[in-house]
Amino acid sequence: MSIEHIKGCIGCGICVQTCPTDVLRQDVKTKKAFIKYPADCQICHLCRMYCPVDAITISPEKSIPVVVSWG
């Protein structure tokens, strides 16, 4: 998983706005952010850096197989 978990979210919505690839959304009821589209995470950490309560933990592993030119 790319974004591992979100804990202690206060529902400010900044991460949802910030994510360049639209990975996160706010739950309609709890207003808390959740990882809706993990496959699109580019592991750039912008959401984590912008989060006011540092609620987001990110792992370096992509949730879908990675295509490279050569390896």
Binding site: I10, G11, C12, I14, K31, R48, M49, Y50, C51, P52, V53, D54
Partner: peptide, 29 residues
């Protein structure tokens, strides 16, 4: 204390983070 660690790392500035926190009208907040 919530925003204190931001002083020692890159990311949103502690003051900005604090303002965001107290102006978020989430039930928990």
């Amino acid at each position: 204390l919530l925003v204190l660690p931001r002083l020692f790392e890159s990311g949103v500035a502690p003051v900005d983070a604090f303002v965001t926190i107290i102006t978020t009208l989430h039930r928990g907040v």
